[in-house]
Design a protein around this nucleic acid. Structure first.
Length: 487
DNA sequence: ATGTTC
């Protein structure tokens, strides 16, 4: 069933920002701010994402604006590509729909000291080895089996737990958002069912838009920042896009069931039941926060184990240790998470719950949460694109702090629904089409490949242009895919 | 995103 598009107001207020006025819907406490170029605005109007931006503006305690990135599209309650900051001192809520089902879905970029010429004749072999080593697809389990006690420890300690077992090195932590450990997570509040689902899945890719890609640095846009990040033209990197698998899904599901009655209990109304939420400072809110943070730590561990397996495969294929291949982690960012952060709101510093659902933290130079190695230039921002065109490395900027609670886009954003993309793929050989474009792809599901085909997505270059122009982050390097494994 | 409709 095709969804009606958005026909409401979008007032251009400059710098690629378009406003949905508070008058658009009853109950809006703040306006909506959608960042996009005119070109992207056209596709944004095609689904109900902008209406969802307006719905989010009704949430108790929301600050400044209900914000959306140029890659927004329709999602559960909240659009994907949205930012919502709430102040707990003003009854601000926490909402699972504002984080997403895949808690701490995110991206990790691993560098190598290899260049295009070193790998171009080994891509098929490399992709095959990656595909047969790294489990992918819905419901897949992996070789790292932790019992439920160990899984709870892993959630409590983050990647430090798996690194202590030789599955990584301590310096990986320095290059992970929050050092891979969100404080305040409580694994003991996570349901047994969720823990069981996660126990055998750590170190697996999953399905949908999740991928592991071998990429080459295709262009460098900011030589100084690229140098600080250790990126140069024709360099080979590995990009990993995955989340917290069945564990995060179950945490979200558990919380949604608990939150169903909270609006009535705490005396507020919601325009959409999928916006289910509770005051961040309520028993229900605090419980979800503790669970969500524990699930986020699991997500960091999942990407740690995915990276470890990629390092092992490279070592095997090239006959050198991963260390010798220079497989250092550039950074790891979450793009589905809520963080309690200090921001300046109308000239006043306050701590707010920043929900980022399909949106990436993009802190500028000098921010204390940016790793020391990058403090002088800003936080690396990793933007996965589609498997046929490109992905990006950006750097955080001051504009993001001033306009979007330190946030930028998270990817290309879907342009076609999964069903439409699937129908479009009937009778085609998408692997062949990709091979003609110079990309070797292996997927565990044929349908998955059709759903994820390049034209199902907006052009990530357009999305990046919008966030660069709006100064929500700046271009550093464009990455082109050479090999991809998918669920 | 998700043992893809407990």
């Amino acid at each position: 069933m095709a969804k009606e598009g958005y026909t409401g107001p979008l007032e251009n207020i400059g710098c690629c920002c378009h406003r949905i006025p508070k008058s658009y819907k009853p109950g809006m406490r703040v306006p909506g701010h959608i960042y996009a170029t005119d070109k992207l605005l056209e596709s944004i109007r095609k689904d109900q994402a902008a209406d969802q931006v307006a719905n989010v503006a009704t949430l108790p305690g929301i600050q400044v604006a209900s914000i959306a990135m140029p890659d927004i599209h329709w999602g559960y309650g909240f659009c994907i590509g949205g930012v919502c900051a709430t102040d707990p001192d003003e009854g601000g809520v926490i909402s699972p729909g504002g984080v997403g089902y895949d808690i701490n879905c995110g991206v990790r970029l691993v560098k190598t000291n290899l260049f295009l010429d070193d790998v171009k004749h080994h891509i098929k072999e490399l992709v095959k080895a990656l595909f047969y080593t790294i489990p992918s697809g819905a419901g897949r389990t992996g070789k790292y089996k932790f019992d439920t006690t160990e899984t709870r420890r892993l959630m409590g300690e983050g990647p430090k737990f798996v690194i202590a077992r030789g599955l990584g090195v301590a310096r990986d932590l320095d290059h992970t958002e929050a050092n891979g450990l969100i404080d305040g997570g409580d694994p003991h509040q996570v349901s047994d069912h969720a823990v069981k689902r996660g126990a055998e899945q750590c170190g697996t890719l999953g399905s949908g838009n999740h991928f592991l890609e071998v990429q080459v640095v295709d262009s460098v846009f900011d030589a100084e920042v690229a140098k600080a990040f250790g990126l140069e033209l024709n360099q080979i990197c590995v990009m990993i896009h995955s989340g917290s698998r069945g564990l995060g899904y179950q945490v979200c599901d558990d919380a949604l069931a608990t939150f169903r009655n909270c609006p009535q209990k705490y005396g507020f109304e919601l325009p959409d039941r999928q916006l289910a939420c509770a005051p961040a400072d309520s028993p229900e809110g605090r419980k979800y926060i503790a669970q969500m943070r524990a699930a986020a730590n699991y997500g960091f561990c999942n990407r740690q184990l995915l990276m470890h397996q990629a390092r092992e495969v490279f070592a095997q294929v090239f006959g050198r240790s991963w260390d010798d291949l220079g497989m250092e982690q550039l950074y790891d960012v979450a793009h589905n998470i809520a963080k309690f952060e200090e921001h300046t709101v109308e000239g006043k510093k306050k701590k707010v719950w920043v929900h980022r659902k399909g949106a990436t933290r993009a802190f500028p130079a000098g921010h204390p949460e940016v790793p020391e190695a990058f403090r002088a230039v800003g936080q690396p921002v990793i933007i996965p694109g589609d498997m046929g065109r490109a992905s990006w490395v950006l750097v955080g900027s001051q504009g993001a702090m001033e306009k979007t609670f330190g946030t930028t886009c998270h990817g290309a954003g879907r342009a076609m629904s999964r069903t439409a993309a699937l129908k479009d793929g009937v009778g085609r050989k998408i692997e062949r089409e990709l091979e003609h474009k110079g990309v070797i792809a292996m997927a565990s599901s044929r349908n998955g490949l059709a759903e994820e085909q390049p034209k199902a997505y907006k052009n990530v270059d357009d999305v990046v242009e919008a966030v660069h122009e709006a100064d929500l982050s700046r271009r550093v390097a464009r990455m082109r895919p050479l090999g991809v494994i998918k669920g």
